[in-house]
């Protein structure tokens, strides 16, 4: 592993100064479950590691039914699924954080890190997109917001400019009669990377879908917002035929490649199956019946 400097700021301001002072050469260290592996493989050349785990804003996890959830970028998975209130309000988030790696990974890995790592297969990102999460990003120059679907821009590349830090993720409060779900397909039971994954959210009203969002993992250069699949549901009755249309739209939106985990054709089929199953579960969580 190459030589690095290490810094552990105790405040957001100090962290931002560290990033500003090391323009482009500093990397945020949260759980390190991706970063250390990449450094060891020579795929991350940053000379300064800024350990962000002691910054209060990045450790925040606060929920209210009115405001929704504010999740600090460094909050590890185990804290999220260990919180009964958050688990009850956002079961789809729990779907994802409880299948990222194994127990040892979940004790360290953060949702913010999974997002910033920008892997096409990131399990948590389809959930963030489906739930309409907004990412709060800060630099010495100010603060801006990025929609979850715009955060990953290429494999391993995120929308952060040099000197910017992801501070927190804001989850809107769950709407009445809404439900969400993430499922993925892997050949093992755990500790694997999705061949494909589907994160969905639905809101029901009077026997119809009033809102829906679908996002897919591992079938495009970035986690993919399949806008058409969600739109295919809006206004339609809560019925298997509506879900079939959305599943077909998700399959059409996927842009997978052949690789060692599966062929493109296989992945396209998975998109339809996983989207259908996830939507069925989301409807059930929303209290609806098919």
């Amino acid at each position: 592993m190459h030589w690095v400097d290490y810094q552990r700021p105790e405040s957001l301001d100090a962290a931002l100064q560290a990033f500003a002072a090391n323009a482009g050469n500093a990397k945020a260290l949260a759980g390190g479950t991706d970063l250390l592996v990449q450094m060891r493989a020579g795929r991350c050349a940053s000379g300064v590691l800024v350990d962000i785990k002691n910054i209060p804003e990045l450790n925040e996890m606060s929920y209210s039914p009115e405001q929704g959830l504010t999740l600090g970028a460094a909050v590890p998975c185990y804290r999220i699924y260990g919180d009964k209130t958050v688990s009850a309000a956002y079961p789809a988030l729990i779907d994802a954080v409880s299948i990222i790696g194994g127990t040892q990974i979940q004790g360290r890995a953060s949702v913010g890190g999974n997002l910033c790592n920008a892997a096409p297969s990131a399990d948590v990102v389809p959930v963030l997109i489906a739930l309409g999460v907004v990412c709060k990003v800060t630099s010495a120059g100010g603060t801006r917001e990025i929609a979850a679907e715009d955060f990953c821009v290429a494999p391993g590349k995120n929308a952060l400019a040099a000197g910017e830090l992801l501070v927190s993720l804001h989850f809107p409060p769950p709407a009445l009669q809404s439900g969400a779900r993430y499922i993925r397909f892997i050949p093992r039971n755990e500790m694997d990377i999705a061949v494909a994954g589907a994160g969905v959210s639905v809101t029901l009203a009077d026997g119809r879908f009033s809102a829906a969002r679908v996002a897919l993992a591992s079938v495009a250069p970035t986690p993919l917002f399949a806008r058409e699949a969600g739109e295919a549901l809006v206004g339609r009755p809560v019925h298997a035929a509506s879900i079939a249309k959305a599943a077909a739209a998700a399959k059409a939106a996927a842009k997978p490649i052949d690789d060692m985990r599966g062929t493109a054709a296989y992945r396209r089929n998975l998109c339809a199956v996983l989207t259908r199953r996830a939507l069925e579960d989301a409807v059930a969580r929303a209290g609806g019946k098919l």
Binding site: G32, L36, V37, R40, K53, Q104, I105, G107, R108
Partner: peptide
């Protein structure tokens, strides 16, 4: 590389991979 678990230790009561944790952390 955070895959096999042979390096597992406890950090503040939680199991963790010592291969993917810096000593300084």
């Amino acid at each position: 590389r955070a895959t096999c678990g042979a390096c597992t230790v406890m950090l503040d009561g939680l199991p963790a991979y010592a291969c993917t944790t810096f000593a300084i952390e």
